[in-house]
Design a protein around this nucleic acid. Structure first.
Lengths: 207, 207
DNA sequence: GTCCTTCCCTAACAAGTGTTTGGTAGGTTA
DNA sequence: TAACCTACCAAACACTTGTTAGGGAAGGAC
């Protein structure tokens, strides 16, 4: 067995992820609250109880913190989504599972979702954040195909514009991150249930 | 008739509003596209074909531009809303009229709506933008009372959480400003019609 | 012509920005 | 004990930020 050939590079390797995660969590919360551009590294350091320069022992740059926050979130999100999409459920069950899974992700990654919601549109232009565009494409494909399958199977109405419906559903789900608070009155599952009831059956009383 | 007692103050008075409006429109579009904090006064000046300092002949500050953009939008918005609310329509008609009016406002003030959507949460904390908080209260009151009237009149379902429903409806309507493009495939009225159909009757096929 | 207003430019300012460099207290290893 | 690594601090760097002060060209009023 040869001697260790490489020195540890704390800013790059996945070693000692504990403190790193901690700092990313606080950074994410400040980003979500104040907005990425309005957040200075000094504010992040304040919330973490250290000085601005010390952050650069753990991270290359402010931007790389943002990237890691979003990447981590999207990785977990697609873990859940792929499980749903691979389960071969019927269209209605798929939609219900996707919505429920989404609210669960909001519960777990509230800050990251809020950041994604606010900043992704501007970030996508940078090649560093090109992975956001790919995620959006997969996202759209998953939802649109589910809706179209439902229309074909005559469980969803055919007179609604599928693309418009997709946008409405998508936005309403994710924008919930702006008002949702973990530990509040409603659990993610309860919110999903109410939301699905509204979208599927409408709020009007049937005559 | 006495001689003119006061000199004109171009930065304050409502005189010569033509160029002022023009500049505010371009500023609003840059704010909406890049975000308020990420937008520098130099970028605004670029889009307007002038230099950064020249903006200060027309406006006191970058912040006052933002304030005027939002105030102008909210004034027009409430003009439309008050007309609807004062018409003494029944709950369902009121909801339909409010939604339709909202999409019309998005059509007319797309940039301002996008800015409001992105920045209002952080701005409300400043006392300069306290009018945003008051608008939000009126907004919530108008929508909640409409929904509650509908539940009382048994035209809206009683088993849905009114507050949750309000949030979903509110968010979906306004977040449309992020993807809506004037002159696109759908008119504001068409989008409102589709949206109302979804929210009122649901997307599921009735058996 | 002269005066005055409008509208913009040039050039700079102070404050705040992300980031880097060198150093150091404290624990771990040899 | 000596060497070393980890995680941070202190102080500065170059740059960008919103904003200001003074000036000047164009054009209408007199």
């Amino acid at each position: 067995m040869p001697t260790k050939p490489t020195k540890k590079k704390p800013q790059v390797s996945a070693a000692a992820p504990a403190r790193r995660r901690e700092l990313l969590d606080t950074a994410a919360e400040v980003f979500a609250e104040q907005g990425y551009n309005a957040t200075t590294v000094r504010k992040i350091a304040d919330h973490a109880g250290m000085l601005a320069g010390s952050l650069y022992y753990h991270f290359d740059s402010k931007e790389s913190m943002l990237e890691e926050i979003l990447r981590t979130f999207l990785d977990e999100l697609w873990g859940g989504y792929d499980a749903v999409l691979g389960a071969e459920l019927d269209p209605r069950e798929t939609l219900e599972a996707l919505v429920t899974e989404s609210f669960r992700e909001i519960d777990r990654h509230r800050a990251a979702v809020a950041i994604y919601q606010k900043e992704s549109k501007q970030l996508v232009a940078q090649e560093r954040f090109a992975f956001l565009a790919e995620s959006q494409r997969r996202f759209e494909k998953a939802w649109l195909s589910t809706l179209e399958r439902g229309v074909a199977a005559e469980v969803f109405r055919a007179d609604l514009d599928v693309r418009l419906t997709y946008r409405f559903v998508r936005d309403t789900v994710w924008v919930a991150a702006s008002w949702y608070r973990p530990g509040g009155q409603h659990s993610p599952e309860e919110i999903a249930r109410q939301y699905l009831s509204m979208v599927l059956d409408g709020i009007a009383v049937r005559e």
